[in-house]
Design a protein around this nucleic acid. Sequence first.
RNA 1: GCCGAUGUGGUGGAAUGGCAGACACGCUCGACUCAAAAUCGAGUACUUCACGGUGUGCGGGUUCAAGUCCCGCCAUCGGCACCA
Length: 770
Amino acid sequence: MKRYDFKAVESKWQKYWDEHGTFKASDDFSKKKFYSLVEFPYPSGHGMHVGHIKAYSGLEVVSRKRRMEGYNVLFPIGFDAYGLPTENTAIKDNIHPRIVTDRNIEKFTNQLKTVGFSFDWSRVVDTTEESYYKWTQWIFLKMFENGLVFRDKTSVNYCPSCKVVLSNEDSQGGKCDVCHSDIIQKTKEVWYLRITEYADKLLQGLEEVDYLPNVRLQQENWIGKSTGAFVNFKIKEQDEKLRIYTTRPDTLYGVTFMVIAPEHPMIQKYRDSISNIDALDAYKTECAKKSEFERTQLVKDKTGVKIEGLTAINPITNKEIPIYISDYVMMGYGTGAIMAVPAHDTRDYDFAKKFGIDIIEVIKGGDITKEAYTGEGELVNSGELNGISNKKDAIAKMLEVLDKLGCGEKGVQFKMKDWAFNRQRYWGEPGTDGESPLAKNDSFVNCKCPKCNKDARRETDTMPQWAGSSWYFLRYCDPKNDNEFASQEALKYWMPVDWYNGGMEHVTRHMIYSRFWHKFLYDLGLVPTSEPYAKRTAQGLILGPDGEKMSKSRGNVIDPNDVVEEYGADVLRLYVLFMGDYEKAAPWSESSIKGCKRFADKVWGLQDIVTDEEGYSDKLVSAFHKTIKKVTEDIEAMKFNTAIAAMMSLINEIYNVGSITKGELGAFAIMLYPFAPHVAEEMYSSVFGKVLSEQEWITYDEALCKDDTIEIVVQVNGKLKAKLNIAVDADKDSVIAQAMADEKVKEATDGKNIVKQIYVPNKLVNIVAK
RNA sequence: GCCGAUGUGGUGGAAUGGCAGACACGCUCGACUCAAAAUCGAGUACUUCACGGUGUGCGGGUUCAAGUCCCGCCAUCGGCACCA
């Protein structure tokens, strides 16, 4: 047999698939469908990363299997091509970003094809093409018309290095997502999408989808629903009420002070009647200078200033309560004001200690001279609530009281904020400070209103990169449509996405955003399902050989091109799936990949030992059925590593037997096909003269997965003593008799009382002897 | 601080409560070779000459039987973070 020339074979089949449109999704909407989606890449100039290969290989395997199972499979790919690096290259090389983008897309396309992914290349979507982005704009306008877009002058996350406003999601941890600079707060007028309107729907929708538990949890945390109460405190000196939000209305009797955010409007409103307004202004200025990072670093040390001239009245005790400003209360959450209960809240406790404020215990169970007690317990010092020890009951009772007094009610809050939507970029790169470079282009900026034809000023900011990716899965259903973003017919057939795989890093941004857009379109009756993705999984990172995250600065990046060049696409695909649990991070190993190379060579070598017989041989029939079952099931569970391991075991067994029937070789090729399609196709076509891509998935017979005899374990007191070969499903008495007759067992039980004999059919016997 | 995940040989990793270490890498020895690579064969948790004993982060527990279940720690990673 000639040596396996993977280069020739791989390019031969890639060409064949391409020319025959093997992976094109059919427009025959009567067939059963399967829509598998992977996150489309940002086409950077560096080309693909091995992480992309792993991310796509999972559903690649599933998609190839589904086609063989008779599904009409939509497995599309596209490019999320707006972005800052492209802009930088364009400026550096003095060319239009369009050219850079086209160049990079071409590079990615070639690389993806070289790996042999079974994408439907006839449906490629590019978010920067007018035929695509006009629909992105169209959806934005629909949102505008429906009151989900607004402009507001508020404090925003601003990256002083990129000179751009960022959403909360893009500035997690107080760092810019692009350049990792510290984010500062800046007052600016920006566009917002009212995503908070959908907070509850986004949370409830999680009930009806099948997401990885971790994915679901992160979304829940991000949405951050909390239930509690709004309470209105009268202001003694003014005809005014201070409204606060609390999750613990049951502790209202323990309030000893109030805290409002430094930016709280009440300060401006009554500045003339506040005697220490200068001190308050100075504190506010100081806070504004702090970065998000500094603000959270100083958690231990509480600062603040007492407001002289405004005093709150506790609505149920009528006691006077001092009001402070402090930066541990944020204007952006709740009402920007809190009632402080130092006995039962750690932050309030720290503040009270520092400012010498009373601490009143209202819940028994801790020692409030030492620290705040945040647990549950019996209520004390709380009037009509005294004696209640269940938190739920206490809260319910307090809500009743507040309702009677007309000074408070049940309330719900979300951590999620509205989505700051505009970016001061052209393709991404900022120009002048805080404005897109387009703002300097008068002929672009000055225009006529399309409705009333009066002079108008054109918006020069762009949408964030997240806009294009918020609906791309819909466009794939009908990518060439020029009249609609996609036809209702196509959407009804293909949606929802049956299985979506991607990275964990997109769970709180891309996924939340796209679910929001989709739910909006659903409410307009423009998409058929309330959720876009029926199932979501996530692959683990591929780490560098040193076990660290791959990065250019560490110099531990593996280029998939090099791997394809040296070992071939099949081996690369096998290895990224074999290296470990698909959902967990695993380090790349230069030597481990050789195991996959050897496996591929052994597969090729099967042709040397193939016989003319059809069907299975007696020696291998159960091994084959077992392996087919294992591979079939493991693919569905994304346990690709053990599926490949099972095929490796089988091939070792085949070589031990020394020959393989034609039928067995065919079965092996089918199993292997989703993982290593090139070698499988070549081998199959040379033995059968048929194209493997057109064959059906192989089935197994449960009855044939069993051997006639089976080895069972004999234990005495849980310790292994012997092994027995018995007939499958042998009866208990005969197996135990055989076990007791064993020399080792006799020795171990000699002179002891047999207390119990346990028989687990086809597994083991355990004899308990004392 | 809160939430979540993970912890198994020299390495990556397998194990519906039922033989711990599948599969693979690496290593050792052997075959082939002038030699090397490739390939093939044997071995490879620790300990013991051996019989045996000990082993899944640590300490308890449940069970005939625990890597797996329960309780309490420790460590690492990820997410959120003055969210009232």
